[in-house]
Design a protein around this nucleic acid. Structure first.
Lengths: 146, 146
DNA sequence: TATAAGCTTAGAGCTGACTCCAAGGTCAAT
DNA sequence: ATTGACCTTGGAGTCAGCTCTAAGCTTATA
């Protein structure tokens, strides 16, 4: 039986966060002392670690709520229930990934196009490109957005 | 001279958002009618479009504030000032990109490992992998996390 | 002139995932 | 018995970037 600070240490999640998860229905302490102190069992620890792993994988707390309810009663759920949640997440991740990749490319082209020197920015090609809505090239090559 | 709704139409930003930007010091209407209605000049329109382009490129409103103050007085700023902001943003984007790519890979492996069928989730390999902290493989290949 | 559409403001609400605070109770060690 | 570390709770604050509301004025059209 672990106290909240011990669970915090074991999982790397703060006690604040653990209480927050409890408030949101993700992880309860199986036991409480007479004074109300939370005490966590091994099973609780595993549940918290499941939550942490799922968070690292990108699932929202709402997703994780669903995954947890599958986890406690696997017989009443299908693999498809699980893949549905996972696939939905993958789509979200891919969408964000595409946005970020586009930003990355733009930023790299902007940096390539600019001297970055200490002379004044009167003719800075980054400023020019942003002014032109990125529609023009970086002065030499016609690649931005296009 | 455009009214706010006209500027909204031209830029694709809502009137709400335009007022929000003004409140945060990014874009002022150069003129006001007697009744206080905002009127935007061509120069204002260009400024708003600059902001929009910078937003699309991933810059925060705070970054854009800096870029705008460079824009209005290019002589007092260097190309390096501009590349500093841009490079900082690129680093942030690359960091997020790495996180998302790791999530993407994990999600794809999870999906590969699971049948996704209508049978119950008792032996679902996604659930098993999340339970094991992704430290184990997808039943067949040893690739998750590793 | 009446109506509807559009404008103004300050300020509140939203999202998600924490993060912190105050006020007070508990526990272990000295 | 006292100190200090730890625990409890409800509720507020944080971040970014909007998004919306309410109450009231203005403007264009019929």
């Amino acid at each position: 039986m672990l106290k909240i600070s011990e669970l915090s240490e074991q999982t790397g999640l703060s006690a604040h966060t653990l209480r927050y998860y409890e408030k949101h229905g993700l992880v309860n302490a199986s036991n409480r002392s007479e004074a109300g102190y939370r005490f966590y069992t091994d099973s609780d620890v595993r549940r918290v670690q499941f939550v942490k792993t799922a968070r690292n994988t990108g699932f929202s707390l709402a997703d994780i709520g669903q995954l947890l309810s599958i986890r406690v009663d696997k017989r009443s759920h299908s693999c498809q229930d699980v893949t549905d949640i996972t696939r939905k997440k993958l789509v979200e991740v891919n969408t964000k990934l595409a946005e970020l990749q586009s930003m990355q490319q733009t930023l790299e082209l902007l940096l390539e196009s600019c001297c970055g020197g200490s002379e004044n920015a009167t003719h800075c090609s980054i400023m020019e490109a942003l002014d032109a809505g990125l529609s023009r090239e970086g002065k030499k090559e016609a690649r931005l957005i296009k």
